[in-house]
Nucleic acid binder design. Structure first.
Lengths: 260, 260
DNA sequence: ACCTCCCTCGCAGTTTCTGGGGAATACCGC
DNA sequence: GCGGTATTCCCCAGAAACTGCGAGGGAGGT
């Protein structure tokens, strides 16, 4: 029954059926509200499963690629495939991850390049493991370089999938946002106390370092001596708790303290 | 008339008024569709103005903090304030920008810290320039370190604003996404041809560099000689068109080729 | 008034990075 | 098979960055 819900897409045209459309809107709100109230990883996992069932698709996957120290996922794939994916370090080969890292908008799997070195064999193994042919993946980016993916996945024709994804893409965008928000609250342990701001000069110094300039060039740009510049870099490194200059720059970058 | 639309928030409870709620949903879809069809910066600007009027608020602002080489904004503030903001480099002081850089979820301005060094005087000047007391800002992150902000802004009581933002926060999340998507298509000139992938070893090398390890430590971790490691770093630098190691790491990071 | 932080400048010694060479094995696609 | 690329190893010399020691003036907050 639920499965047929998405076939409503043209119902809105008919005034009599608008109430059914309202029901669809309410379903989205129900999920978002439920996500806001979830407290544990199990809650999130249950909601992902419920989501799959409610939208009548084969799989729904939230994959925290780079969120906190330990990897996390809430998904409807088999645990065996999850383990295998992790053991084989497929995250480095997976065209979905590689593609999403460079996209902003949700992307259909058909847009992806599956011709890479390890991609084809990965595809074969994935399909054997129950991953379906149609997919839509939503990239999610947060502060501190957080990156996650929300994917829905089904076995159906191109035409059906296009209708489905056109209809529910925006739902998925909101759902992926709320899942990520909740997951971060749950799994990212504590905010570092070292949240001291950088001074403007320190920010400038790190910014130019990130742009590839040498210390000599930067000191000219900022019209200060190279020694002074070094003091800024050192103090920034201290504030950020960084081990060396590269670490300081990447840390500042990921924390949003500098931008290109 | 439009202004009263958002007072519909409780109408959904009444079945008779559900059709009005449908109208609200349709308004959102209308804006998203219009954004997808917009072609020029002027189109986007017009839509931001239309959005302000349709939602009955005082200001709507899309601010591309770090998208492409030249700054861009589509907003309803006065050109004088825009220019002054730019000339004074307020982007480095603005608590809205600083706060949003560390947030994932849309944030109310009341959550912000206005006690910083230059923040208070900035606040004074902003209010004098017509920026209102209530605000909601949506952080937007894209690939390549893109960062932008979408803000709505009004003069009203805390209670009214809370009702409004609760009701339309999700609308604004979608709208901000679609504005950014369109702006990137319009203002970001061409995708660099230098899109060659890094090899796994190169990725590993840069990743550990970003984490603050020295070459000696990394070569131990990867169980290769330091000379070999250096070859990876050099080739990665070449592929990325980077000027030095720091540049290579930050470039790879911002392009999503490596992650922590 | 005192304390903290920001900005500016200096020296010396050690470590690390950069740039220029060269070379072998192996895999993949055309 | 051949060209391209990935992976691994090696040498050397100069340039650059890191570490640890100081020093003084100014602006802001308690």
């Amino acid at each position: 029954m639920m499965r047929s819900l998405w076939q409503l897409r043209n119902w809105r045209e008919c005034p009599v059926r608008k109430l059914a459309w309202v029901a669809v809107v309410t379903r989205l709100e129900m999920f978002l509200d439920a996500l806001e109230e979830s407290q544990t990883p199990d809650d999130v996992q249950s909601l992902v499963v419920a989501l799959r069932d409610s939208y009548g698709i084969s799989n729904a996957v939230y994959h925290a690629v780079n969120v906190g120290p330990i990897p996390y996922a809430a998904l409807t794939y088999t645990p065996e495939w999850m383990q295998y994916y992790h053991d084989q370090k497929f995250v480095q080969v997976d065209p979905v991850v590689k593609g999403a890292l460079q996209k902003f908008h949700p992307m259909d799997w058909k847009q992806l390049d599956w011709s890479g070195r390890g991609s084809r064999e990965f595809l074969g193994e994935a399909i054997a493991a129950g991953v379906c042919n149609q997919g839509l993946s939503v990239p999610i980016r947060g502060p501190n370089g957080q990156f996650a993916l929300f994917t829905i996945n089904d076995n159906c024709s191109d035409a059906s999938w296009e209708m489905f994804s056109k209809e529910f893409k925006r739902d998925m965008m909101l759902i992926s946002h709320y899942i990520h928000r909740r997951v971060v609250d749950i799994i990212v342990p504590e905010q570092d106390v070292n949240r001291r701001d950088l001074s403007p000069r320190e920010t400038d110094s790190l910014k130019y370092l990130a742009l590839g300039f040498s210390r000599g060039q930067i000191s000219e740009k900022l019209k200060i001596s190279e020694h002074t510049l070094r003091v800024y870099i050192d103090s920034a490194r201290g504030k950020l708790g960084a081990l060396n200059t590269i670490h300081a720059v990447t840390t500042a970058f990921s924390r949003g303290l500098i931008s290109f």
